[in-house]
Simulated scan of single mutants.
Amino acid sequence: MTSSNAPSPPTDGDAEPQLAEAPRGEGGFHIGRQAFQAAKPQSALYIVSTPIGNLGDITVRALETLAACDLIACEDTRVTATLMQRFGLRTALTAYHEHNAARVRPRLLATLENGGSVALVSDAGTPLISDPGYRLVRDVVEAGHRVVPIPGASAPLAALVGAGLPSDTICFSGFLPHKGGQRRTRLGELARLPATLVIFESPRRLASSLADMADVLGADREAVVARELTKRFETFERGTLAELAERYADATVKGEIVVCIAPPGVMTEADPEDADALLTEALNDMKAAAAAKHVAQMTGVDRKTLYKRAMELKAQ
């Protein structure tokens, strides 16, 4: 992800120690003590996910792609070099970011035009998530070349699955505006969305952002602050927005932050009778499937469970 406040790159300090020297054959890489060779990929732009913290989260497919492609385009060659050294990757690197994109993009397109393969990586996580890399994808598609995603680590998804909030409908909003007035305006636009909000935040702005979230989105709205995901000091702090704002008001915070906020009206521990009452009311205007989805967003109860109960209520 490309941003001055994007999650910092993984380091060897957050992963297992290196166990072997890098193999030196073309298209080679190693995992621990075992060396591998990778087959040359078809000509395409490969969007390759890299770890967000723990280097052990790299996938075998990502390593094969990075080892055998002709060129790796990355935000910062020094950052990607850490990953390259850990797994014995020898592919040529070129810096590609928003400040040099216009100059470097023709080289990437020329590589594809000549039948080569290019891998695009970010400093951490999945490229194009909260970064401008989509422009390269659009140009590659317009030029008639293939784009192949190589999925893997993603900070928004890691935070979401650990948060314990409804995940059937989500809204990823990246980083909020830095200035308070603009931030509150953006939160106002998101306030009534029937979705779990997933937001990146800087440690130095976390306290002020949580205070704005509590004020604009609602003090009682459930939320989770996920910090240092996949790293040694990973934490999930849970509570209402008001509680979290108070908890972090005077705290010194370090690391990378993802904030997950429950949809409006969610009850974290819904009573079965409450769910029945909501389902009964929803069934007056909706079919069973729609009613189940609606109540799931409100309560956090599994939608399939609610659908089964809705059918039972209709049969009564």
Rank of each mutant, 00 (worst) to 15 (best):
P7Q: 12
P7E: 14
P9N: 12
D12S: 04
G13H: 13
P17Y: 14
A20S: 12
E26T: 09
G27E: 05
I31V: 15
I31Y: 02
G32W: 03
R33W: 15
F36W: 11
F36D: 12
F36E: 06
P41L: 02
P41C: 06
S43T: 03
L45P: 00
Y46R: 05
I52T: 01
I52P: 14
D57R: 00
T59R: 06
A62W: 01
L63F: 15
T65G: 08
L66H: 09
A67L: 12
A68D: 03
A73E: 07
A73R: 06
E75T: 06
T77C: 08
M84D: 09
T91P: 04
T91Y: 03
T91W: 06
T94Y: 15
A95T: 10
H97C: 13
E98D: 10
H99R: 07
N100T: 11
A101Y: 08
A102S: 13
L108V: 11
T111G: 10
E113R: 12
S122T: 10
T126V: 03
T126E: 05
I129R: 02
P132F: 14
L136C: 03
V137D: 02
A143Y: 03
G144R: 00
G144S: 08
R146P: 01
P151A: 00
P151F: 00
A159P: 08
G164C: 01
T169I: 07
I170G: 02
I170E: 06
F172W: 02
L176P: 07
P177W: 06
H178G: 11
H178V: 13
K179E: 11
K179M: 03
G181W: 04
Q182I: 14
G188T: 01
G188N: 05
L190Q: 05
E201V: 03
R204K: 12
R204S: 08
R204L: 08
R205D: 07
S209H: 14
L210N: 03
D212W: 04
D215K: 07
V216I: 14
L217A: 13
E222W: 03
E222F: 07
E222Y: 05
V225T: 03
A226W: 00
E228K: 00
R232C: 13
F236N: 01
F236S: 09
T240P: 12
E243D: 13
Y248F: 08
Y248W: 09
A249D: 10
G255Y: 05
G255L: 05
E256I: 08
E256T: 12
I257K: 00
P264Y: 10
V266A: 10
T268I: 10
P272G: 13
E273A: 12
A275H: 02
L283E: 04
L283V: 06
N284F: 04
A292E: 00
Q297E: 09
T299M: 12
V301C: 08
L306I: 10
E312N: 15
L313D: 01
L313R: 02
A315R: 13
